[in-house]
Design a protein around this nucleic acid. Structure first.
Lengths: 151, 151
DNA sequence: TATTGTTATACTCTATAACTATA
DNA sequence: TATAGTTATAGAGTATAACAATA
């Protein structure tokens, strides 16, 4: 009934009315379940993200991949090293610019991606079981509109 | 038109269809804008979260506050130390259990919270400018339903 | 001069195990 | 024996600055 902050309400207080708070909680739930779902594959959120972006844009540069995912150049180095070491990504000096690297997903990378995608779909189905397909689309749509405001 | 992963689509590939990916992006946008919005207050997301929970439940125990926010006991220590040092939280040995600490928000803490809340509302209004009030409620509602599935 | 990737570094967040003091 | 808080520590994510090679 109160519009101000209640005392001893047994809840989270002002937090519950904030979109950011709920985003934080749900992101946490997704994150830990994702990690569980990926157990044994050696893939993490970032690594799958990179694989996915490179698969959609074969030959793209390391820097461009990082930019699309909001990963800084400096932090891309170790990540790409990891993917190359695991033979999931192929890294070649770009023909037209010898400073840059052209990335492609290896055959093994494609296999790994397919398996990961299967697990991720199951993980999302698990966490979104209470939402109808329409509601999932609504959720993605709302999130995309927020992304467009600030990207 | 393709239901499989496209090649050279210029986009994020399979990522775009995943709720988790959009959550990650939007959470990132909210996180960095939150940090900017709080500049000069000394408050971060976690610290504001603790203040908010303790304000809503005066006298609550350190462990219970952490539990509500998904923060492990071990990690609460330094956070509460920080809030006590800043005179935003009062920490007293609980009368009925001398192992435990009873937490309350200090007067200075309430002032800080009010100012933080003002900034956070502005920050959310900024990032959610494209959404109607109904859409914001829908978004929070959907997120809350996901939280309930796994908490 | 500017850009691509690199190295070094540092800070926050998160997670685990072993400890203490109380219960 | 179990619980509340503590300490130490380690890993992941993220951020900045300075550098080499190339443009």
């Amino acid at each position: 009934m109160a519009t101000t902050i209640e005392q001893t309400d047994g809840g989270s207080g002002a937090l519950d009315t904030l979109v950011g708070y709920h985003l934080r909680r749900v992101y946490g739930i997704f994150g830990s379940d994702f990690t569980e779902a990926m157990e044994g594959t050696g893939l993490r959120q970032v690594l799958f993200g990179i694989l996915s972006v490179v698969a959609a844009n074969p030959g793209m540069r390391q820097g461009a991949a990082g930019e699309m995912l909001g990963i800084q150049r400096a932090n891309m180095v170790a990540l790409i090293n990891e993917l190359v070491a695991a033979d999931l990504i192929d890294r070649q000096v770009a023909e037209d610019d010898r400073r840059a690297f052209a990335l492609t997903v290896t055959p093994a990378g494609k296999v790994a991606m397919a398996e990961a995608l299967r697990r991720i779909r199951a993980h999302e189905d698990r966490l979104l079981a209470d939402l109808s397909h329409d509601e999932r689309r609504t959720l993605i749509g709302l999130l995309e509109r927020i992304e467009r405001t600030r990207t």
